[in-house]
Design a protein around this nucleic acid. Structure first.
Lengths: 206, 206
DNA sequence: ACAGCTATGTGACACCGTGTCATTTATATT
DNA sequence: AATATAAATGACACGGTGTCACATAGCTGT
């Protein structure tokens, strides 16, 4: 988390700094990004950066989290729009993220994040989804999803359904970006795989 | 790929270098690993390292690939052992990798690789699996798997089945390691999710 | 207006790791 | 032995990070 000093910053300066960081993280991965470049672009001295952030990871995950929260809101809206159809809602999020990855406003930030996806990055994207999802109290998503048509007995099973959806969604995002799929190809692959897991990988034993 | 010079090395020196690299990559992630440490441990001068490898990534992926090839052989054996049951064979590989991640011979190399999983690392693990898998010529795996009981019409569909299995398998590995699951917990979660995708996430419309 | 206190801004600097390269040493070839 | 080719070596330039002592601004009560 950025330090309090960062949040105390005047809007203009804060915006400039965020913009500079986004620019650097659009240029290269978190790994290759250089704080020095952010400083140059933002026009602030070195010491100031450390006044606001722990390190470059801190800045990166702040930006990523902002984005993830937006996507999460989109997801909730989609769920309502499609009357709780988890698969349609996820497909819409998938499409959203793809759009953001194809150089939205010449910011490759999301693209670079996905191409260098690791657990921490995935977790930033999904932590909102999985809050209190395991057993315990019911979570927001579970209540929005039309679970009657799902092949689950307990609420706990829903946790696993979400895990599966997340695994496949992120795997597809990364795979399709890495292999320069067009949006259409990426959607074809995704919907194909979603259909497969909806109906099951094994033949029904009728 | 390591340079030819590396392969020309005398066995003893090569072994020592590999051991030093493995030690460093067991200590920290690829990102945090330092060539300098490898040099110290192996007792070779700086210039020599660059005689053998392009950079630390080169050394890392050489090691990882060696491991991945072993796992792939295990997978083929398991497939035969279980008469082409893809799910049992994958579960066995899952268990294998987990074993290697729980400090096998106090080498945390695989653990660190999984915890910092990204596309390139995943690809190193799976490239053997996916060779020529898409359309074209039949691949080795497809011929070993008992596909009659799978819910697929074309060989191309098998590609998607594998993609789904890979997505879920790696997602579980990373998730379980990140959250310090015991081997038992990790297997429970995995088998639960495999059962779910075998039978399908939607209720059968009988 | 001023002293005193706290929060923020600043940039020089020490530190560390990387990759290179000119030079030396070993090995093979004629 | 002379020459050519391959490998070994370590000093060095470069670039990035995080820190720290000092400077400046903002606020408070007198």
């Amino acid at each position: 988390m950025p330090k309090q000093t960062f949040f105390n910053l005047k809007e203009e300066k804060k915006r400039k700094l965020i913009e500079a960081a986004r620019e650097e993280f659009s240029r290269v991965s978190l790994y290759d990004a250089s704080i020095t470049n952010i400083l140059k672009t933002a026009g602030i001295p070195r010491g100031s950066f450390y006044q606001y952030f722990e390190d470059k990871e801190d800045a990166f995950f702040y930006l990523l989290n902002e984005h993830a929260e937006e996507r999460h809101q989109n997801f909730l809206s989609s769920l309502e729009k499609y009357n709780g159809d988890l698969f349609l809602a996820m497909t819409e999020v998938y499409r959203n993220v793809l759009d953001y990855s194809q150089g939205q406003g010449n910011s490759n930030f999301i693209r670079n994040a996905l191409l260098n996806m690791n657990y921490k990055i995935e977790h930033t994207f999904t932590k909102h989804l999985m809050e209190k999802s395991r057993g315990q109290r019911a979570n927001e998503i579970y209540n929005l999803v039309e679970t009657d048509s799902l092949n689950i007995a307990l609420e706990e099973d829903f946790y696993h359904v979400m895990q599966i959806m997340i695994a496949i969604t992120f795997h597809n995002l990364v795979h399709c970006l890495s292999n320069d799929f067009t949006t259409e190809e990426a959607l074809d692959k995704y919907t194909k795989e979603i259909e497969l897991i909806k109906s099951g990988l094994m033949k029904s034993n009728n």
